[in-house]
Simulated assay, not measured.
Amino acid sequence: MTTTHEENYAFPRGFNLGDLILEGNRMPLLTPSEDGGFCLLYDDVSEKKADALLESLSLQLLEHMPLESLRVEMFDFGRKKFYHLSPLQYLSIYRVSHDDKMIAEHFEELEHTIITRHQELLCCNRPNLNAHNQKSKLKQNYHLVLINLHHFPTTEIELRRIKNFVESAVHAGVYVIAFGNQEIETSGHEGVQTILKHFKNLRVTNNEFEITSEIFEHTQVFEVATFEPLDLARPALLEQIMTNANPEERFAPESIKLETDTKVMK
């Protein structure tokens, strides 16, 4: 998507993982987004805790960033995980691919976006999409790709494509959060291992988050502070996003402006 909107089209510098709590004071714990994303790995008892963080983080980004500047993309099969993201599908800011064919097509579209942006937009004085969007009137949107590692990459997607994707995505404004049960770490799938090794790993065991120096540089703070993972009021965030989008006005017939003075060529 391209837009001429003048709002600040910059992806936040960090992913909000929750709060540091010190003597009753709270401050957000951010892990840098310039790394391109992270892997969230949980054990059996911690899946709900991990899901709450993922959905809260996605909704918070959608609510915080200018309307339509971010699309959340999901690669996942099986049961629905994120009930408060689902209503955003008809606004085209959340998209789910839930079978091999859909995922293959979806991944190819993201690949095309990344390649096109590297070829046509990025250069020495615009090394990434944030830099481009600060200098250009034609803003490009960002993508947050949520990947269930148990279902992606599929065997049909070559390792070369996975490597190119993870290495070039962030500069083109495509961020990745891969997630899965910790058992995926023993997978023999080279594509899965490529993703696990490329991105920093955040582990959740027995509902406790392991904040390493890879995730947050100043780990010494945990000697005096505690960490509370992100678990926001998701219904309220969804309501605010819908209010910002104003779908009734957006899709009302009188708000749809058709082209005039068009000619039909015979």
Rank of each mutant, 00 (worst) to 15 (best):
D19L: 12
L20W: 06
I21T: 14
I21P: 00
I21S: 01
L22H: 14
E23K: 14
G24P: 06
G24C: 11
G24E: 12
N25D: 14
R26L: 13
P28K: 10
P28N: 10
T31L: 11
T31H: 05
E34W: 07
E34F: 14
D35I: 02
G36W: 08
F38T: 09
F38N: 10
L40M: 14
L41K: 08
D43E: 08
D43P: 04
D44C: 02
S46V: 02
E47D: 11
K48P: 00
K49M: 09
K49F: 06
D51E: 11
L53G: 01
L54K: 05
L54H: 00
L57G: 00
L57F: 08
L57H: 02
S58I: 06
L59S: 08
Q60G: 07
L62Y: 05
E63K: 13
H64P: 00
H64M: 11
M65L: 15
E68Q: 12
L70D: 09
V72T: 09
V72Y: 06
E73A: 09
M74E: 15
F77T: 02
F77M: 07
K80F: 01
K80R: 13
K81C: 03
K81S: 13
Y83A: 06
H84C: 10
L85S: 02
S86I: 04
S86Q: 14
L88I: 11
Q89N: 05
Q89S: 14
Y90R: 14
L91S: 11
Y94I: 01
Y94V: 14
Y94F: 15
R95T: 11
I103M: 15
F107R: 00
E108Q: 13
E109C: 05
E109K: 12
E111G: 04
E111D: 10
H112W: 05
I115S: 06
T116Y: 11
H118K: 13
Q119H: 11
E120A: 11
E120M: 12
L122H: 09
C123D: 15
C124A: 13
N125I: 13
P127G: 08
L129R: 01
A131C: 06
N133T: 00
N133W: 03
Q134N: 04
K135P: 00
L138V: 01
K139I: 02
K139E: 07
K139V: 03
K139R: 14
